[in-house]
Design a protein around this nucleic acid. Structure first.
Length: 463
RNA sequence: GGCUGGGUGGCAGAGUGGCCAUGCUGCGGAUUGCAAAUCCGUCUACCUCGGUUCGACUCCGGGCCCAGCCUCCA
């Protein structure tokens, strides 16, 4: 039985889909004006694993992850760059897709863009206007009248009267109430704009998600996800918009992942303490980043540090080392035993990937113990290890390639040279010239090559 | 002030009413020409104060501390 922590009810609940065997899921994707940082990577990886796991449970999942390609930040950045905003967003959409591919994040089924959804956005605002939830301020902007939506605050657990308006962001003078938010914003000179019943302008920050999610998934769907920082105001406002339009509960399960922190402080663009995915990829493999993310529960804070990534690196190398030289193709991997049971139990418990990884290590350990004895059992377990790891999107590379490759992969010439030196060392060892053998090993060690002398053979891997 | 999450061994990080997480690192042993890898063993872990209980790190209550949110953020 799958249990999910639902941010809406603040408790773990048994998951029941709206439609038997099917899941409709929406995740807030990127606002594309810069490269993805590790915080974005966390959302991408976490929900990637959630989707993979839901599919494993035989649900037919429709996964929608949007792209917000028009908003204030994009306009500001495009202006700074003296660049058309569309060129800017195209560039970062491409970069995001590259990052996703590197991180082994499977593409969503639908990836709607705000700028392609203008008709839906406008029709939704019209409906809100018709239902009496909006007003046009004297500056021409259309606002959502939060006081009209009785359930406002149900997701974040906030009461309007307890909030300190303008605590961090200045309140717009045109609003009736500080908690109101913009639905349609009038275009200033030289700003990108779309025609609408309220004049040329662009959508406010929250409406695009309400429009795209209902457009792609209907008035009601199962899961809505995103980072913790979106819970308020973004998701609260999405609820206000969608439910004021449809009169129905829009989402059954809200899933929010925790932050990535740097030195115990949230990683964010505004604080400037972020590391982009491509930056980190210069020093670590994508799989190491993925492991690092999945090694803690998705709701916990995750501290970014090179120590933690180094630990991820060692841990993965150990698992690959175990798989090295074991043929797994004879078995399909779908083995039912105490490992698979506990793996599923962990994943069923609100996607406890850290617990699931610990099971992978228990299997690894068992394979190491068996390897000298029962070969076929070791192969069977290795196939299982790979299969279970595939749900987390790790351990899928050829171990040989993985262990000899990496961030600064060697070229063919270098590997030929290594093989030559290893051959020389083997000969030295046969003639008991250990001084020479050690000298050769030292040369390779200095290049970051680690040797392992197996029975009658020597293999190598990168440090 | 209100609202969310959290506080677990050297570090990271799960979990459980009584016994073992797991990973990284350190230490001892086996193995090895020496290593590496692997195996075996090992390091005073559960913020604090009360309560419930035969038994609490785990359940309940009061503190303290950390992070985040209160209309820019994943």
């Amino acid at each position: 039985m799958l249990e999910i922590y639902n941010s809406l009810t603040k408790s773990k609940e048994e998951f029941k889909p709206i439609e038997e065997g099917k899941i409709r899921m929406y995740v807030c994707g990127m606002t594309v004006y810069d490269y993805c940082h590790i915080g974005h990577a966390r959302v991408l990886v976490v929900f990637d694993v959630i989707v993979r796991y839901l599919r494993l449970l035989n649900y037919e999942v429709t996964y929608v992850r949007n792209i917000t390609d028009i908003d204030d930040k994009i306009i500001v950045r495009a202006l700074e760059n003296k660049e058309d905003f569309m060129l800017l967003t195209e560039r970062f959409i491409k970069a995001m897709h590259e990052d996703c591919e590197a991180l082994n994040v499977l593409p969503p089924d639908i990836e709607p863009r705000a700028t392609d959804s203008m008709a839906d956005i406008i029709s939704m605002i019209s409906k809100l206007e018709k239902n009496g939830y909006s007003y046009t301020a004297n500056n021409g902007d259309v606002y959502y009248d939060v006081k009209k939506f009785k359930e406002y605050g149900k997701l974040s657990g906030r009461k309007l009267e307890d909030q300190i308006a303008g605590k961090r962001v200045e309140v717009d003078a045109a609003k009736k109430n500080p908690e109101d938010f913009v639905l349609w914003k009038m275009a200033k000179v030289d700003e990108p704009s779309w025609d609408s019943p309220w004049g040329k302008g662009r959508p406010g920050w929250h409406i695009e998600c309400s429009a795209m999610s209902t457009q792609c998934l209907g008035d009601q769907f199962d899961i809505h996800g995103g980072g913790m920082d979106l819970k308020f105001p973004h998701h609260e406002n999405e609820i206000a918009q969608t439910e004021a339009c449809t009169g129905k509960t829009s989402v059954n399960y809200w899933i929010h992942n925790g932050f990535v922190q740097v030195d115990e402080t949230k990683m964010s663009k505004s604080l400037g303490n972020f590391f982009t995915v491509r930056e980190v990829l210069k020093n670590y493999r994508a799989e190491e980043i993925r492991y690092f993310i999945l090694n803690s529960h998705y709701r916990s804070p995750l501290n970014y540090s090179s120590d933690n990534l180094d630990a991820a690196k060692s841990a993965l190398a150990n698992m690959y080392n175990t798989l090295r030289g074991i043929k797994t193709d004879k078995f399909d991997g779908i083995l039912k035993n105490r490992y698979s049971e506990r793996f599923v139990k962990a994943m069923n418990d609100d996607f406890n990937t850290a617990g699931a990884i610990s099971i992978l290590f228990e299997i690894t350990h068992e394979i190491n113990r068996l390897n000298s004895g029962s070969k076929s059992e070791a192969q069977e377990l290795a196939a299982q290890l790979k299969y279970l790891a595939s749900i987390l999107g790790i351990l899928q590379e050829d171990p040989e390639v993985y262990l000899q490759g990496g961030v600064n992969a060697l070229d063919g010439l270098e590997t030929k040279e290594i093989d030559k030196l290893i051959q020389q060392r083997i000969e030295a060892r046969i003639s008991k010239d250990f001084k020479e053998a050690d000298r050769i090993r030292d040369v390779l060690t200095a290049k970051g090559i680690v040797l392992e002398d197996k029975a009658g053979d020597t293999i190598w891997r990168k440090e």
